[in-house]
Amino acid sequence: MKKGIAFFMIYIIMFLTVGCMAKTEIEKLAIVVTFGVDITTDGKYMISTQILKTQKQSPGGMGGSKGEKQPTEVMALISTGDTIPDALDHLSKELGKKVALSHVKFIVIGEDAAKAGIAELMDFSARGYQLRPNVVFLVTSGKASEILRTSTPEDSIPANAIAAILNLQANYGYVPVTTTMEFANSLASKTAAPMAGVISLHGDEQVGRVFKMIGIAVFKKDKLIGYMMGEEEVRGVQWIRDKVKAGNIVMPSPNKGSITIEIISASSEIKSIVKDNKPIIHITINKKGNIRGMVGDLDAMKNPEILTEFEQLENEVIKKEVEKALYAAQKTFKADIFDFGETIHRDYPDEWKNIEESWSEIFPDLEVEVEVHSSIQRIGVISKPLY
């Protein structure tokens, strides 16, 4: 009995000791949740970081709620260096703590740095053991440091606010979510063009600034070549990439006013065809939705053909968005952000060997067929407008 009690006491002491050691180790770390990359006028890297701060609570017992230092908000710090690791080392020396990157959610890249090329950032992301492969790349048209030093009223940790906005906008199809792994795969491809989401700030400092995420930053290899910022063309890209999962489609009513259709599900499929030694891409988009709002004298219960007309209007709206996206990618940027080349490679490996080297000349004039099938599932509690 006494031996059992002794073992139990030893176990408790070991548990408490490990807990104290863990706390001590955490206190020696500067835990980064987001960092940004800019280029200075003299060609150095300027790294902006958001580091979790800790705040002492009143002393108490076990459970992790008393007497511990717990993260409550972030502090924004900037360091410079000849390389990214060099800049982070300078930050570590200033803080007297080891910089921990395992909790980084986003990397924000300033426009100047993106245009200069992010090969070194990609190397650092892939080579370092701390950064996870699902860290998300975001590009801003200004300085990354502006984004990193901004706090918003939505959350005491800005990275959480960014995550919430990004998740919503991604489902709506207004911004791509590109991880470091996905960007690296596009870079490794001989044909695909990398892209990333765009983040910006809106509002003023007196009222409060908020993050806005809409748009696509288009790259040629590791260098930024431009932006797609129109909502229609951006969502068009995401229709093709099978990333639109929610949102609304607003279209003119055949009667009067406008109709709002809620997107409840959507899917897309990309196939390739080689005809007379000429590659053709065929995109099929299937979308289901519910009527969310309409005005006029139309009654879908009395005249079910109205729904067929609505569905055809939806098809036209979606197809128009896709065509805008295709025009921007093929004619404006000449960048295969859809990875059509890999689709042809997969479907026709032998034929692909003959066109792979000239894909950059083929893509701008590639024939793309778009087929859209929309269906309205529900019209709502009322069958016609009240007024």
Results as ranks from 00 to 15, higher is better:
residue 182 E to H: 14
residue 91 L to C: 07
residue 87 A to G: 06
residue 113 A to W: 01
residue 169 Q to W: 02
residue 167 N to D: 14
residue 183 F to I: 06
residue 100 A to Y: 15
residue 106 F to H: 10
residue 136 V to G: 13
residue 110 G to Y: 02
residue 89 D to Q: 07
residue 192 A to W: 04
residue 172 Y to S: 08
residue 183 F to P: 10
residue 151 S to D: 12
residue 101 L to H: 06
residue 101 L to A: 09
residue 90 H to N: 15
residue 84 I to T: 00
residue 171 N to P: 07
residue 183 F to Y: 08
residue 109 I to Y: 08
residue 149 R to A: 03
residue 102 S to F: 11
residue 186 S to H: 11
residue 133 P to D: 08
residue 119 A to T: 15
residue 140 T to W: 04
residue 106 F to R: 05
residue 167 N to I: 09
residue 117 G to T: 07
residue 78 I to V: 10
residue 111 E to R: 15
residue 133 P to H: 07
residue 83 T to F: 00
residue 106 F to C: 08
residue 170 A to R: 10
residue 147 I to N: 09
residue 194 P to S: 03
residue 187 L to G: 04
residue 110 G to D: 01
residue 165 I to T: 09
residue 140 T to K: 05
residue 186 S to R: 13
residue 102 S to D: 14
residue 168 L to N: 13
residue 89 D to A: 08
residue 118 I to N: 02
residue 166 L to A: 04
residue 114 A to E: 05
residue 162 I to P: 14
residue 99 V to R: 01
residue 166 L to R: 06
residue 111 E to S: 12
residue 168 L to S: 13
residue 130 Q to G: 06
residue 136 V to N: 12
residue 188 A to E: 03
residue 183 F to R: 09
residue 138 L to W: 03
residue 192 A to F: 05
residue 92 S to N: 05
residue 142 G to N: 04
residue 85 P to R: 00
residue 94 E to W: 12
residue 144 A to Q: 00
residue 187 L to F: 04
residue 171 N to T: 09
residue 100 A to Q: 13
residue 79 S to Y: 00
residue 173 G to M: 04
residue 94 E to T: 15
residue 163 A to F: 15
residue 105 K to P: 11
residue 192 A to N: 06
residue 109 I to D: 07
residue 107 I to L: 12
residue 104 V to R: 13
residue 138 L to G: 01
residue 167 N to V: 06
residue 192 A to T: 06
residue 87 A to Q: 07
residue 103 H to W: 11
residue 128 G to R: 02
residue 191 T to F: 12
residue 114 A to G: 07
residue 147 I to M: 08
residue 175 V to K: 01
residue 176 P to A: 05
residue 149 R to E: 05
residue 166 L to C: 07
residue 107 I to R: 11
residue 147 I to T: 03
residue 180 T to P: 11
residue 193 A to S: 09
residue 167 N to C: 10
residue 166 L to G: 07
residue 84 I to N: 00
residue 191 T to L: 12
residue 105 K to L: 13
residue 132 R to V: 02
residue 182 E to Q: 13
residue 189 S to Y: 02
residue 80 T to H: 06
residue 166 L to V: 03
